[in-house]
Structures are given as C-alpha cells and as structure tokens.
C-alpha cells in the first residue's frame, strides 16, 4: 500500500462504503470485506471489526436487513441486503461526499492566487 487513510477520514464513510457494496447485490461479512479490498485496488482494508459494527448500526437504522443463508461447510452465513431507505441514504451520502471532496480539495491544495483568477 502506497499511502494510508487516517481512521478519522474513513470513519465517516464506512456506512457509505458498505451501502455501495450492498447496492450491487446481497452479501455476507467476509465477502463484503474482500469486496472492499477489491474496490480499493488493494490499497485499503476495512477491518472486520469495523464492518460488523457498521452492519449492526445500519440494520438498526433500517438501511439494511439481514437473513440467514443455507448451511455451508463452515456454518450458516448471515447475508445483508440494502433496503429502499438504504438506497436513498447512499445517494444522499454520495452527493454529500462529492460536495465535501471539492471543497476540501480547494481548502487543502488551493492558493489565494488561484481564487483571484
């Protein structure tokens, strides 16, 4: 991994990341974990501990729901599915993120000369 993302920066976006994986299909804990790594091009790993906490929070708020899958060799898998409310939340979060991203880039990289032009 080339750089790091501070936990502070990622914390506010964990829910959106999970929603982004789930809006593309139902999935279970370990698979979501692998998909996040894949999405980041192996640049970032979201710890399972963080994921399970996010699942609980998202489910309580009605953004996702869970159901048990069939037995596999290792036991039953708990699957998660995004709800309609979760889809809407995702769209809103994406908008918020794009807005924040633009402003932050200006705040962090911008010079006063640029503004005058």
């Amino acid at each position: 991994m080339v750089g790091t993302i501070s936990t502070d920066l990622i914390r506010g976006n964990t829910d959106t990341i999970v929603l982004n994986v789930l809006r593309q299909g139902d999935s279970y804990g370990y698979e979501i974990y692998k998909k996040v790594i894949e999405l980041s091009n192996n640049q970032y790993e979201l710890k399972e501990a963080t994921l399970y906490t996010a699942f609980r929070r998202l489910e309580q708020e009605g953004y996702i729901l869970s159901y048990w899958g069939d037995e596999t060799q290792g036991g039953r898998r708990k699957y998660y599915r995004i709800t309609k409310k979760g889809q809407e939340r995702y769209e809103q979060n994406k908008k918020d993120w794009n807005f924040a991203k633009e402003v932050l880039t200006r705040l962090i990289e911008g010079g006063f000369c640029d503004v005058k032009k």
Binding site: Y28, Y30, G74, G75, K78
Partner: peptide, 16 residues
Amino acid sequence: FDLKEELATNLKEKIA
C-alpha cells in the same frame, strides 16, 4: 448467539 455464529462462519472461511 447469532453474532457468534456469523463471526465463526466468516472466520472459518478466511482461515480456509
């Protein structure tokens, strides 16, 4: 009870 089962299933898959 449910969480333990969820964690165990996923952990076993990761170990595999």
